[in-house]
Amino acid sequence: MSNPGQISPLRPVTRHVTGHNAAGKAIIHASSPGEWKSFEAKDMAFDVVYTTSQFPADLNNDADLAAHEQVVQSDQLGLVNPRGTVCRIVDFAPNNKCIVHRTQSLDYGIVLEGEIEMLVEEGEPVRMKRGDIAIQRATMHGWHNTSDTEWARMVFVLQDCQPLTVGGTTMKEELGIATGVLNPSGNDQ
């Protein structure tokens, strides 16, 4: 039942991209299964659903489709796409390792399956259930599936943001234990 490359037992995902025909009528441009990459000894898997490389996106002559394909084929995408957006699905194994990190981005994280804890530097972890949404604003944070048996799935939409300065310090991307494993985003230069 899994898609090739998918490591979790959760339902496979299919991406449906719309477009227009020559008469300007809406069509389904393409449908394709998720393309998963495992991380952290298969405790986590990513599926990059879509990216944009500028904001606002340019949909004319399918420029966004070409830009997305170029980003994916480059194999250089970090967590954030500079000057653009990333829509990514992440599956978390039971008792996965919590990877604490910071991205220079404004992120919407929505729990699709299971439950997950959101950790930040100060305060107690927040347990998030299906349908809950985190608005992550360039903070140091982490995600931890505390279940002993069930996988969790989240969808994230990451948007590049202006440099954030707090107390005179400019915040930078920090990948924690994922440094050297994940590509740096390069949007905090």
Rank of each mutant, 00 (worst) to 15 (best):
Q76P: 14
E121W: 05
I110V: 15
V86D: 09
I177W: 08
P12D: 09
R83Q: 14
A57I: 11
V90R: 06
N145T: 02
G167M: 15
A63G: 10
T146M: 10
S8Q: 02
V120N: 00
R15S: 05
Q73T: 03
E117Q: 14
A152Q: 04
V111N: 03
S32H: 06
D47Y: 06
C87F: 07
V120K: 03
G78Y: 13
D148Y: 01
C87K: 01
P94C: 03
A22L: 00
H141D: 04
M1D: 13
E40W: 11
L158R: 02
Q159C: 10
I89F: 14
T52A: 06
F156H: 08
H20L: 02
S32T: 08
R83G: 09
V181S: 11
V157D: 05
G114Y: 07
A63W: 04
F92Y: 15
V157I: 15
E174P: 01
T103P: 03
S105E: 01
S31F: 10
Q162G: 02
G19F: 05
E40M: 14
I133T: 15
V120D: 00
D75W: 05
I110T: 14
L158N: 04
G114E: 08
P4G: 11
G84M: 06
L59P: 04
L158G: 00
I7K: 04
N3Y: 06
M128S: 11
A138S: 12
N81Q: 05
N60I: 09
G24A: 02
P82G: 10
T169K: 15
E174M: 01
I116V: 07
L106C: 13
Q189V: 13
I99W: 08
T146R: 11
P125N: 09
P94N: 07
A67M: 03
A152T: 06
L164W: 07
